[in-house]
Computed example of a mutant assay.
Amino acid sequence: MAAQAAAEKAAREAAEYAHAAREVQEAEECLQRGIQPVIIPMLDEIATVKTRVQYEQGHFHFAIAGVAGSGKSSLINATRGVENRNQDAAETGVVETTVTTGRYPDPNPDLPFGLFVFDCVIVLFDNRFTETDIAILTNCRRFQIPTYIISSKADVHIRNIIYKDGYDNDRDDVTVHE
């Protein structure tokens, strides 16, 4: 009996090892094709991140995500009604400015403002939608987090298009016919 139990245990361990080896091989093949692995956080990891971002039950927590320079800090300041020069504003600049995740309280305490611990994620992009943006949206869908996609700096893009097409506001002699 002991020999049979030992043989069954060895067979189980060999099958588990073979399964793990196949998973590693599949993951390596995916990485070679540019497919990023899916990492599902454990409950203790979720709790750790909630503590780090000062998550408070009963508040609405949202994240603004996007590539460097897309206007995330400016959107945070505009949403909070804070001018960029204000000492409580998210720092902005023409080069990558914000290098750490921050928490910005709502200047109006009567309205509670509070990737997988947030109640909502806003993905901000400026002139092109990137693989990073797609990865953020894919993970939000995986965790069933509502997302909103916002195109920033539209005024700059419109101005550039108008300039490129040679629009001259001094020649606004278009007549409207009714």
Rank of each mutant, 00 (worst) to 15 (best):
A2E: 15
A3L: 15
A5L: 15
A7M: 15
E8S: 12
A10T: 09
A11P: 00
R12C: 02
E13Y: 03
A15Q: 08
E23C: 10
Q25H: 10
C30I: 00
C30M: 02
I35P: 00
Q36Y: 07
P37D: 03
L43Q: 07
E45M: 07
K50Q: 14
T51F: 12
H59I: 04
A63E: 02
A65L: 12
A65M: 11
G66I: 04
V67G: 04
V67K: 09
G69T: 08
G69D: 06
S73K: 07
L75S: 05
N77L: 08
T79E: 04
R80I: 03
G81F: 05
G81E: 05
V82Q: 05
E83L: 13
N84A: 15
R85A: 15
Q87A: 14
D88I: 08
A89R: 05
G93Y: 13
V94C: 10
V94I: 15
T97S: 10
T98Y: 03
T100P: 04
T100Y: 10
T101F: 05
G102H: 03
G102D: 04
Y104S: 03
Y104F: 13
P105A: 12
P107A: 09
P112N: 12
F113Q: 10
L115M: 13
L115S: 09
F118P: 00
I122V: 11
V123N: 00
N127C: 04
R128T: 10
T130C: 03
D133Y: 05
I136G: 04
L137P: 01
L137Q: 07
N139F: 06
N139L: 10
C140F: 02
R142Q: 12
Q144H: 11
I149T: 04
K153G: 03
K153I: 07
V156R: 05
V156W: 01
V156Q: 02
I161K: 02
I162D: 07
K164M: 06
D168L: 08
D170R: 15
R171E: 14
R171K: 15
T175R: 14
V176W: 10
V176H: 10
